[in-house]
Nucleic acid binder design. Structure first.
Lengths: 189, 189
DNA sequence: CCGCTCATGTAACAGGTTACATGATTTA
DNA sequence: TAAATCATGTAACCTGTTACATGAGCGG
């Protein structure tokens, strides 16, 4: 019952189709949740059956028709309940961190390659999030925007995504440096 | 096939029982993976059947007997393969972030309460990780330790955990400030 | 003409969570 | 004497991933 609320939250700022939603929940883009298209189509069906969202068919000529969904009153109430109930703690669950945990027992060259790849991925997301933030706040400074403008929810979650990816990148870079220095020290002995 | 490698990595620096492992993978402690005890006992059975770990019975008098597990050669090889294969990207999947995404449409008082709770949890983990790092490096400076000492894997993952929780805390505090200022502005209108 | 985008799903499987079960010992 | 710790599991369920399926239009 978690994707459920992520979908509701995503639909708050305007109607979206399953396809559009899928793009927003994509690995390379998602700033507050990730899910595959299949999961989203299934969840949209469930939410519609439950009356938490409602869809309207949009007939298109050159493209397949699509259904745009918006949150109903009942959906808003559900989100309210969700927000009132206490959030489960979150934690890191990351293959790369597991690899580093084993750093003393595996090939450090391979590890360095993984870390570089991840650092590059993080860098790309940092770039993307920076652009998203700039486009959301328009001509305002961040302070102004957060004080007076709407909506701020997506802006705040994007800030979290940005900080998370900066943390990833910095840690990857630092870890690479450490591993490389140790390789050199070992070579010299 | 992910918990599998997390368990192997955890067993690298000395044998552990299922119970001890469960404590290390606990929500409030875990710095590189989280899992419930049930999952761990099941995984240990599978790993043992597969010959990736081996256990030895330790008979105790005042306590129930326990089985201590260590990684075998085959297990080490498996970890090597895992590290060579490319790591899946990781992402945030967090109830609290979903709630903030909906910030413009839900009760901000409730949100602030959630954020405070999370900030306190993060603070506790920051404290814990700080202590773990200090105890691992002993009298060395961090630089010295990372250059010359063993093992560094657990130290590096702990650093990632620390940075992650600092990111959590800072974001929670900032978000609380923003929401409170807007409440006041709204009250004044 | 090949691959990408738009658009929506079904089915099988792997992974994670919650609930239940047991029982002795130590600490508050 | 109540609660926590040590120690290990089974079973049912919910969530997420991977594989497969379809089909028109658009850009290089």
């Amino acid at each position: 019952m978690a994707l459920r609320h992520a979908v509701l939250a995503a639909l708050l700022d305007g109607e979206l189709s399953g396809y559009q939603l899928a793009k927003a929940f994509d690995l390379g883009v998602a700033n507050f949740w990730h899910a595959q298209p299949q999961q989203l189509y299934a969840e949209l069906s469930r939410l519609e059956k439950g009356g938490l969202i409602a869809g309207r068919e949009v007939v298109q000529e050159t493209r397949p028709n699509k259904r745009l969904f918006h949150v109903t009153e009942a959906g808003l109430a559900e989100l309210g309940d969700f927000t009132a109930a206490s959030a489960k703690p979150s934690f890191i669950r990351d293959d790369l961190v597991v690899m580093v945990q084993a750093a003393d027992h595996v090939d450090s060259q391979a590890l360095i390659a993984q870390l570089s790849e991840r650092a590059a991925f993080a860098e790309a997301k940092i770039d993307l999030f920076g652009k998203m933030l700039r486009s959301m706040r328009g001509d305002h400074t961040e302070e102004e925007f957060l004080r007076h403008c709407d909506p701020i929810g997506p802006y705040l979650t994007c800030m979290r995504g940005l900080a998370f990816e900066q943390g990833n990148r910095d840690w990857c870079q630092h870890t690479i440096t450490v591993l490389q220095e140790r390789r050199q020290a070992h070579a010299h002995h």
